Amino acid sequence: MTEYERSRTMPAPPEHVFDQAAHIDQMDTWLPDDLHVDAGDLPAVTVHEDRTDADTSAVFRAQREQMRLEWGTRDQGGYAGWLQVAGIGSGASEVTVHLSFFDDGHDPGERAVREALDSSLERLEEQVRLRVDNAAG
């Protein structure tokens, strides 16, 4: 099993960050460019990967009371992850994303995963900023 984890501070309360991250119809705005989530009958979702042009059955759960998202492959069990939002005071939050690859065939490698996680967290922060700026203006 291989695990990866990245964190980023965001300039918004945890509730705002969580709501943006958990909005399943807007996940394409912050997920890696080649991943798209299609909500089925939650918690069931389908994840489409452009690189392989493959659809994968997965599960997605949002636990607002814990400010946590969890997901993973449904049939083959090769991959799982979570996103945790925590308030750090002064209206800011820290977001941590953790990925676990149980099957080496699903692991694209450390460099690719770290770049994807950093890019996704940066894009999520942009979406959070847009939401906060629009709410304030």
Rank of each mutant, 00 (worst) to 15 (best):
T2K: 14
T2N: 14
T2Y: 10
E3P: 00
E5M: 08
E5N: 02
E5H: 04
R6W: 08
R6H: 14
R6D: 14
S7I: 03
S7A: 15
P13I: 12
H16W: 06
H16I: 01
V17D: 03
F18N: 03
F18P: 00
D19K: 13
D19H: 07
Q20L: 07
A21R: 02
A21S: 04
A22W: 02
H23V: 04
H23Q: 11
I24R: 02
I24K: 04
Q26P: 05
Q26L: 06
Q26F: 07
M27V: 11
T29E: 15
T29L: 15
T29M: 15
D33H: 06
D33F: 02
D34I: 12
H36C: 06
V37C: 00
G40I: 00
L42I: 14
E49S: 15
E49Y: 15
E49P: 00
D50L: 15
D53K: 13
T56N: 09
T56F: 12
V59G: 01
V59R: 04
V59I: 08
V59Y: 03
R61C: 08
A62D: 00
Q66A: 13
Q66H: 12
L69Q: 08
L69P: 02
L69Y: 03
E70H: 09
E70W: 12
W71L: 06
W71Q: 06
G72W: 04
T73F: 07
T73D: 10
R74N: 13
R74S: 12
Q76I: 14
G78W: 03
A80G: 08
G81C: 01
Q84H: 07
Q84E: 11
Q84M: 05
V85I: 12
V85H: 04
A86R: 15
G87W: 02
I88M: 01
S90Q: 14
S90E: 12
S93P: 01
E94Q: 04
E94H: 02
T96H: 09
V97A: 13
H98G: 11
H98S: 15
L99P: 00
S100C: 06
S100V: 09
F102N: 13
D103Y: 07
D104I: 02
D104L: 11
G105R: 12
H106W: 12
G109W: 01
G109L: 03
E110F: 07
R111D: 12
A112N: 08
V113G: 14
V113I: 10
E115W: 01
E115P: 01
A116F: 00
L117F: 08
L117S: 12
D118Q: 03
S119Q: 07
L121Y: 07
E122D: 06
E122S: 11
R123T: 04
R123I: 05
L124P: 10
V128W: 02
V128R: 08
R129K: 11
R129A: 11
V132T: 04
N134Y: 04
N134V: 05
N134W: 01
A135R: 15
A136E: 00
